[in-house]
Design a protein around this nucleic acid. Structure first.
Lengths: 157, 157
DNA sequence: TACAACAATTGTCTAATTACACATTACGGA
DNA sequence: TCCGTAATGTGTAATTAGACAATTGTTGTA
């Protein structure tokens, strides 16, 4: 069905270029926290924030590291006060990982900073542009699907 | 003046959601290379790719590490065949860092993978939606201004 | 009940990433 | 020319990341 014409390629390029501004917003919101937690650590926080308490092994797998490595990685995060180990109601050999108040606040702060940043940019645009943007981005997000949570996590975003 | 209405919030939410979808694309494109180079190393490649041959100290500074540290870090990248040291035409005490063919190809591959991913998503949308998205993102990019390259680099974008 | 499988951790090792202090070499102005 | 400074590199050490093996405790099952 020859879906990719030269025009399509141009649109893809233009989209990619324009989307860089959006990436800039995201990067800024995350970078501000890197003094506090490392990127891999932030990754775990984001994951727990969206998935809730999760078994150690499951998180390790999604992070793509071996459980032994992960256990000591989590030791440091526990020491930092971002997450804590908790007993699983299902089985006593399982250990659940969950955010502490600090951990949750940190993720929320990043999201909030990002949202504020976006709002500031939107306020410069005209109402018509805003409406058009909303519809266009919704279409894009729908097309992209509800996907790749795992991919996102790898970068910690 | 109550600038933030419910409608504004909806646009901001849509933008946030789209930013996550976009990040999925970016993350996926980078993740595939992490078997080959580490994230810090990839950041150097991205930087050299956009800035061209650059003095050691300048790269170290932009990476936020102390110059003395950087030398051995680069040793590993040279050993891996991704970058090479070159004499500076300006001064014999300066050492320029530049991408090798492999290094450039690696960055290009990531960009290409990213572009293909976007194309795939766009192909699901209607032509009208594609055009609308392109224009809307352009307006957003204009309003946002130039993203801080430093922020993007931190994430290897 | 005894035993295999499972989840998490700990022991041990290698290597990457970073810092700080110092050494080396090259410029550049007095 | 000579000396201060700049750019890079080395020595040493701490922290982190990662793998694999072995251990501990738990669960499920033959």
């Amino acid at each position: 069905m020859d879906a990719f014409t030269a025009a399509d390629a141009r649109v893809a390029d233009a989209t990619l270029a324009a989307s860089r501004a959006l990436l800039g917003v995201v990067a800024r919101s995350v970078v501000a926290t890197l003094d506090v937690v490392s990127l891999p650590q932030f990754r775990v926080l984001v994951m727990l924030s969206s998935a809730g308490p999760t078994r150690m092994g499951a998180v390790a797998e999604r992070m793509g590291v071996i459980p032994s490595t992960f256990s000591r990685f989590i030791d440091r995060m526990v020491a930092g006060g971002w997450v804590e180990r908790a007993a699983s109601p299902d089985s006593r050999r399982e250990v659940l990982l969950e955010l502490t108040e600090s951990g949750r606040r940190l993720v929320d702060d990043v999201t909030e900073r990002r949202r504020a940043d976006i709002s500031a940019i939107l306020s410069i645009m005209t109402p018509d542009q805003r409406t058009a943007l909303q519809h266009a981005l919704q279409a894009f997000a729908d097309a992209a699907g509800e996907p790749q949570a795992a991919d996102l996590l790898t970068l910690g975003l």
